[in-house]
């Protein structure tokens, strides 16, 4: 009896462990950032420059921040301010961490979806106008099923080689 219990406990612990490992862990971002504040004054493409014209939308480099903010923004707390200053001095400053990863076997073009297809950014990235902290997780899970269901809804090609390169 006790042996069965022990086996049960081990299986349970392993299962929970595996589930925890498999679960998406939030990705830390180096600095605080509010999409809500920025999108009031600027369009998405100001920082994500490739969204309409390139396959990759692009994650802004530190220099992009600096092009508006010559000095550390006053809202930053003291330790973050120090990081900003370090970044300003560094040759290769810390960058925003990537949340969306397109696998090697998929060809995804932002231009095709935004400029040609006219899809709203929020369809895949969520409503950033209300986000006040830097996102630490992809707003929607990106899976082939999601791609296919949208392609079906929009009646665009579902041919394998249209996306698989």
């Amino acid at each position: 009896m006790s042996r069965r219990l022990a086996i049960g406990v081990v299986v349970f612990v392993l299962g929970v462990g595996a589930a925890l490992l498999a679960a998406e862990r939030p990705i830390e971002q180096p600095l605080p950032y509010s999409h809500a504040v920025h999108t009031k004054e600027a369009a998405c493409v100001l920082c994500h420059a490739g969204a309409q014209s390139q396959p990759n939308a692009g994650i802004p480099k530190f220099s992009v921040c600096q092009s508006c903010h010559a000095t550390p923004p006053p809202r930053l707390a003291a330790p973050d301010k120090a990081r900003w200053e370090n970044a300003a001095k560094a040759k290769e400053p810390e960058a925003w961490n990537r949340l969306y990863e397109v696998p090697n076997h998929v060809y995804f073009s932002h231009r095709r979806h935004v400029a040609v297809g006219g899809i709203d950014c929020a369809a895949c990235h969520g409503d950033m106008a209300t986000s006040t902290t830097p996102p630490t997780q992809a707003a929607v899970p990106i899976s082939m099923r999601r791609c296919v269901s949208c392609h079906e809804r929009e009646q665009v090609t579902n041919d394998c080689t249209a996306c698989h390169r």
């Binding site: 076997h105 041919d159 394998c160 080689t161 698989h164």
Partner: peptide
Amino acid sequence: TYRDEEGIVGQIYY
């Protein structure tokens, strides 16, 4: 491997 609508025989590597 499959033949698409426009007659190209594609290979899905993945």
